[in-house]
Write a protein that binds this DNA or RNA. Structure first.
Lengths: 207, 207
DNA sequence: GTCTATACTCTGATAGAC
DNA sequence: GTCTATCAGAGTATAGAC
């Protein structure tokens, strides 16, 4: 236990720095290649470590990936958590959409890591989807449904409203290559998307 | 050349049947595991062939994948091609959205194959995105822009309008696992999505 | 046309020196 | 704590019998 960084909190600065390096390199490689497409060689090289040294910090490839996903789930749902039942309905929905789009812009690698995992059937994160995620979405969908019943928003299925926000915002991170290929040079996809999504939801949600 | 199914059109029924089996099995495996995650063993087993026999029909793993993507690009853009400049603007946009959603419902494996490719930076399909795809999108975006300038649709960026339709419709194929995990049993995600998307775009595009 | 056997490479993981 | 050397298994692809 004493000298095992993988099962205990790191205590030296070098350990902390190296573990962060590994996780950052792993995020880069896993998000671009998927779990099986990624190799420890790539991660080790990007992290500036030898492969055995990398495996000193984490017991296995699977463990690195698991750590990344666990860390991600922590922050990934923050924008939705912040949706305030006491706020103004339109502001809250538009604010949620903007926070989600900003997260896609700032964390495209995390978005792609997540997308890879879901695309492949969520073999590692499935339980969290049916548990933590479902609970949070059900709760917030209830809030939105209340707003709609009170006539403060146009009525529609709140779950699918949330899905639509996920789809639209994550698309710009996950399909970035395609978006840029079609637009050509001289564009700022995220800024342009922000404008369109604002208009779209404002009109759609107005009673 | 005579007996090489990979470079010539197959001429026997057995060859045709086996090549179709291989491509169908490969679609299943590639779409679920990504290119590197897929193995020839899996594909061969699913196709009911031995691995060497599989490699008699296609020269390499890469060749199978390439064939799938090439076939897919052919049909993937059909819904957009059908958008008719002479039609009613609202009907045309909503019709396009519905055809795209129906394609996601009927061809989820193809959608995920495509998503995997884009997520990983479109290493094999990149040129087609900047060429064929961009040309078609630019053309149809021009049509839509004309409708908006004529006051027949609410004004918005037509490229991003098209992206939004891609994002929303493909989401239900690519993130199917997540959607179903959150909704729980007893739902028909595609039918429910159809209703919401219809309302969403109808309101957003009305002047 | 299809199979068995196998060559060769890549990859995840370990042993052991320093 | 970090490195060199290396193993065992998986994976793509080929050779050659039938």
């Amino acid at each position: 236990m004493e000298g095992d960084p993988a099962t205990a909190a790191p205590r030296t600065r070098i350990q902390q720095r190296n573990m962060r390096r590994v996780l950052d390199a792993a995020l880069e490689v896993f998000s671009a290649q998927g779990f099986r497409g990624a190799t420890l060689d790539q991660i080790a090289e990007l992290a500036g470590l030898s492969k055995p040294n990398l495996l000193y910090y984490f017991p296995s490839k699977e463990a690195i990936h698991h750590q990344l996903l666990a860390d991600l789930m922590d922050t990934w749902l923050d924008p939705l958590r912040e949706l305030d039942p006491a706020g103004d309905p339109m502001d809250e929905i538009l604010g949620y959409m903007r926070r989600k789009l900003e997260m896609s812009r700032a964390m495209p690698r995390e978005s792609r890591l997540f997308a890879n995992e879901i695309l492949q059937g969520a073999p590692r994160i499935g339980p969290a989807l049916e548990g933590e995620l479902k609970r949070l979405v059900d709760e917030k969908a209830g809030v939105i449904a209340g707003w709609m019943e009170a006539g403060r928003l146009a009525p529609m299925d709140p779950h699918h409203l949330i899905f639509s926000i996920w789809a639209l915002t994550q698309h710009y991170a996950d399909f970035d290559v395609q978006v840029r290929a079609v637009l050509g040079p001289g564009h700022d996809p995220f800024a342009e998307a922000g404008g369109l999504l604002d208009t779209l939801y404002r009109k759609a949600l107005t009673t």
